[in-house]
């Protein structure tokens, strides 16, 4: 029983980790807490459902959901970033919150507010190993999230674009002086963040088979928690944080009420913010620049 819950916690944690990576990417490079990411997560989940519901084959539906979400993230870039240079520092954050609100209520207008259930695409494929039930989509989800985060960190470390992104993260003024085309790279950050949020949304939809317009909020909160626990701006920290939060949640919900979990989780967050704002796992001195 405990072992099974641990496995479930790892699966849930991998979803949180991807959301945390999306958040941490935009904080690490742009120092921007992008609240539209839970909305993008929801769009991906709802779009997966809507496309499958409309009769699209599921591989195409997944690709479609990813593409739609990345495109929407680029629209968010225009409104929260490009056109807001020189505003109060928290205006982009506030504008991204408005996007979350907009996405949720547009989704209600479009698809209604009720819970939508996806068909069981992978019925009967569960593996039973030593008494534990492991769903194939769960396993694939875990593999995909680890692989994609690994891919991201390779991209940041090995490619010239990654180096440019890290230069922006260090100091955007210096990056400009060094000839880094910030205007060309910022959309890349948004597209990547959108893709990670979308992957998380698609995996969530396929694994838990339930989507609704407010699905992003709870997951977004957990993603933020995972990011803080792992250290803002750190991709591997996001994985560690995601797993810690996911496992803690699944294990504790069984024994204490969900609200006590919230108090504990957010209390822990406050403590980390006060005592060790770089997160529990980050070895780097500052959240910024430590991608």
């Amino acid at each position: 029983m405990l072992g099974q819950q641990f496995i479930n916690g790892v699966m849930l944690g991998s979803v949180y980790a991807m959301v945390a990576v999306a958040l941490t990417l935009s904080i690490g490079v742009l120092n921007f807490l992008n609240f539209s990411i839970p909305g993008l997560f929801m769009i991906a989940g709802m779009a997966t459902w809507a496309l499958i519901h409309a009769g699209v084959a599921w591989p195409l539906a997944i690709l479609g959901a990813l593409a739609i979400t990345a495109a929407v993230s680029l629209v968010v870039e225009r409104f929260t970033w490009r056109w807001l240079r020189g505003a109060e520092p928290f205006v982009p954050l506030v504008s991204s919150m408005a996007f979350l609100l907009l996405f949720e209520h547009l989704a209600i207008a479009w698809w209604g507010s009720e819970m939508r259930v996806l068909p069981s695409l992978f019925a009967g494929t569960d593996w039973r190993v030593a008494g534990f039930v492991i769903g194939v989509p769960q396993l694939v989800g875990l593999a995909v999230s680890i692989a994609s985060i690994f891919g991201l960190s390779l991209l940041l470390k090995r490619t010239s674009m990654g180096r440019s992104l890290r230069t922006i993260a260090e100091d955007s003024d210096t990056a400009l002086l060094l000839g880094v085309d910030v205007n060309r790279l910022v959309p890349v950050v948004f597209a990547l963040a959108g893709l990670f949020a979308a992957l998380a949304g698609v995996l969530f939809a396929l694994n838990y088979r339930q989507v609704q317009p407010f699905m992003g909020e709870a997951v977004g909160l957990k993603g933020i928690s995972a990011m803080i626990v792992g250290g803002m701006g750190s991709t591997w920290g996001a994985i560690a944080g995601g797993l810690v939060i996911g496992i803690t949640e699944v294990l504790s919900v069984g024994y204490v009420g969900a609200n006590f979990v919230d108090i504990a989780v957010f209390g822990l967050l406050l403590l980390i913010l006060f005592v060790r704002p770089t997160g529990l796992f980050a070895g780097l001195p500052a959240g910024r620049g430590g991608i």
Partner: peptide, 10 residues
């Protein structure tokens, strides 16, 4: 409301 916020902020 959300659309107004986004446009006004921009």
């Amino acid at each position: 409301f959300a659309a107004a916020v986004i446009i006004l902020m921009a």
